[in-house]
Nucleic acid binder design. Sequence first.
DNA 1: CTGAAAGCGCTAACAA
DNA 2: TTGTTAGCGCTTTCAG
Lengths: 337, 337
Amino acid sequence: VITSWDIANEAGVSQTTVSRVLNDDPRVAEATRERVRAIIERSGYTPNAIARGLVTSRTNLVGVAITDIVNPFYPELVEAIAGQLGEHGLRMVFANTAGQPDDLYTRVLLEQRVDGIIFTSALLDSPTVRELAERNFPIVLANRYVDGVACDSVTGDNVSGARAAADYLLELGHRRIAVLLGHPRTSTSRDRLAGFKAGLAGSGVQVDPGLLREGRYAYEASYKQTNELLDLPRAPTAIFCLNDVMALGALNAARRSGFRVPDDVSVIGFDDVRLSSWETFGLTTVRQPLAAMARTSVDLLAHRLAFPGAPAQQRTFPSVLVVRSTCGRVKEVRRGG
Amino acid sequence: VITSWDIANEAGVSQTTVSRVLNDDPRVAEATRERVRAIIERSGYTPNAIARGLVTSRTNLVGVAITDIVNPFYPELVEAIAGQLGEHGLRMVFANTAGQPDDLYTRVLLEQRVDGIIFTSALLDSPTVRELAERNFPIVLANRYVDGVACDSVTGDNVSGARAAADYLLELGHRRIAVLLGHPRTSTSRDRLAGFKAGLAGSGVQVDPGLLREGRYAYEASYKQTNELLDLPRAPTAIFCLNDVMALGALNAARRSGFRVPDDVSVIGFDDVRLSSWETFGLTTVRQPLAAMARTSVDLLAHRLAFPGAPAQQRTFPSVLVVRSTCGRVKEVRRGG
DNA sequence: CTGAAAGCGCTAACAA
DNA sequence: TTGTTAGCGCTTTCAG
């Protein structure tokens, strides 16, 4: 392999000078710079970021922790994050956290000396996140927060988004509403549920505990739960799914069993992933400004890398109801009602 | 930050010994090993992979180049690749190549000194891939190949898969068939088209050049093209989409315009992403054994890292037709027929 | 079984 | 404007 020494020798300058050219240090004569540049070009030399990292203790690598890359929410997030990281000259190290305990993949990222970590699916009680925050290691929580940990975070306004969903369903006359929950130990699931309940409570409506189901933000779980719900003697007239993937699962399950949406049952989601707007689904949902959230997450991290001592920032983005075609007015007469 | 020296001092051993413990070197007394381990544990010391990389010139980082992470095909691939990389103690550096020229993101990966690169969406004429291969840098082409470059590669059997699609459509009586092409400079698009044409030719059927449309493997392009195709005075009775995302776009476009699938028009895809099996779509398509292909890609790379001189391997996986519900028998009388 | 010393390829004072 | 020198935190001979 070819090193900066080789370039230096060939150019007849010191290795330091080569390093300076590489880093656009102004104190290099134009002529020298040109000469060195030419040689670098022609030789196909690539500076060794590892060596650089060792001395600067900066790698320009950012760990991005993702639980479930197959959930369409995440690719959209990843795309936006990766793009914005690039703007800051940062690269993304993908940490597939599916099934792994937090500290395992975190350890790897730390060994790799990433400059920071973006958690996209932190659990509410994550000790790893807490510890990192306490150690003052640069992290940002994208789309989630962790109880009692004051670090940079970016979230949608889950409470008011869910409340909007509740208001809308109430307005359509629904009273018997099921909720497919997300992962139990996530801020998103907790806040969305809280917002939804609060919205219903405003009109004196309660959620029947029997209609509160674990969906874990997963398609399959939702599919199964929906089938069960629709088989109930007193089936719900509407299902609020705490994310879109589950809503899509509900839609498919309902159709599969011959239920018509929204005639027989209304379905509403959360996130507004791209799929949801497809004609086939026309999912009514609560939109999160994903791209802006991703961008902000990266910006916060970049800011922290530049100013390690800066106070932690919590940024919240508004969620808005997007009405499409999976919710309808409740029918007066219901089978088994 | 805490280094192996700190550990050594505290344990009253040389730094070398600490290094040996870290690397499970057998020539360390059990007692010493235990003592060092304990201190490492309690201190929260994390070995610096950067420093290690500098001396070993191995980073355990693998670059994975992805064009379009939002295309559901890729998250599925990424999930499988990331999982398998983990099995080999390797980490994935995500290279979002969307819009970027090959050499740009490749350069970054190279600077980062990744041990190898997996290209998931190489173009047929990629000079970067060619150069890397010539330099004998460890790469593997997953799902694609590059003309005239002999490097490790993993592909589905696109030709015979597409031929199966052709046979099936012929069998259903279709003769006027449109094809939505993938990216023009990809082996997948070329091979699938070739296989399809060959299949039709076997029965003396030709593809009307006017029904051959650029879809670039993208949802939106496909959506638009489908609308145009269905508006034609002599619209096709079937559309073969060179990937599932386009097929889904076609499905949505058709439904949107009031066409019924498969009654008015048949649609067939390629890949069999998870979405495609959802009730809402029930897409008839050609399945690629994605997980196996991903696993093999990683295995090939790992093998090459272990045996740099090994001959290049090309592995092909069979593709099979998956019949669901988007293709039907052609109707005798066609509007404008 | 353990340690001393050299060095991976770079950056960053410090001199000149 | 340029060069010299000293590390960054590890692994790896080579000696004990």
